[in-house]
Amino acid sequence: MTAEQQNAKRGSTTAARLWTLEETAGFLGVPETTLYQWRHKRTGPPSHRVGRHVRYYPEAVHEWVRSQA
Rank of each mutant, 00 (worst) to 15 (best):
Thr24Val: 06
Glu63Asn: 10
Tyr36Lys: 14
Ser47Leu: 01
Gly11Ile: 04
Val65Arg: 09
His40Glu: 10
Ala25Ile: 07
Gly29Val: 01
Arg39Cys: 01
His53Gly: 00
Thr43Glu: 13
Tyr57Ser: 12
Leu28Glu: 06
Gln6Ala: 15
His48Ile: 13
Met1Pro: 08
Arg39Pro: 00
Trp19Ile: 05
Thr33Glu: 13
His62Ala: 11
Arg42Val: 09
Val54Ser: 07
Gln37Tyr: 13
Thr14Leu: 15
Gly29Asp: 03
Val54Glu: 06
Thr24Gly: 02
Tyr57Ala: 14
Thr14His: 08
Thr20Gly: 12
Met1Asn: 03
Thr24Ile: 03
Lys41Gln: 14
Gln37Asp: 13
Ala15Val: 07
Val65Tyr: 03
Ser12Pro: 00
Ala15Asn: 05
Glu63Val: 07
Arg55Ala: 08
Ala25Cys: 08
Ala69Asn: 07
Val65Leu: 11
Arg42Thr: 10
Thr2Trp: 02
Thr43Asn: 05
Pro58Glu: 06
Ala60Asn: 10
Lys41Phe: 04
Leu18Ala: 14
Arg49Lys: 15
Arg39Ser: 12
Tyr57Met: 10
His62Asp: 08
Val50Trp: 04
Arg66Phe: 02
Leu21Arg: 14
Tyr56Ala: 11
Thr20Trp: 06
Leu35Tyr: 07
Arg55Gly: 02
Met1Asp: 11
Val61Ile: 09
His53Phe: 13
Val65Met: 09
Asn7Asp: 15
Ser67Arg: 11
Met1His: 10
Ala16Met: 08
Lys9Tyr: 05
Leu21Asp: 09
Trp19Pro: 07
Leu21Ser: 12
Gln37Leu: 14
Ala3His: 01
Ala3Val: 10
Ala3Glu: 03
Ala69Ile: 07
Glu63Arg: 14
Thr20Asp: 09
Thr33Trp: 09
Ala69Gln: 12
Trp64Lys: 03
Val65Asn: 01
Gly51Asp: 04
Glu63Phe: 03
Met1Val: 13
Thr20Ala: 11
Glu22Tyr: 05
Gln6Gly: 02
Gly51Phe: 04
Tyr36Asp: 12
Ser47Tyr: 10
Arg52Ile: 02
Asn7Gly: 03
His48Glu: 13
Leu18Tyr: 14
Glu23Trp: 04
Arg52Asp: 04
His48Cys: 07
Gln68Arg: 15
Glu63Ser: 12
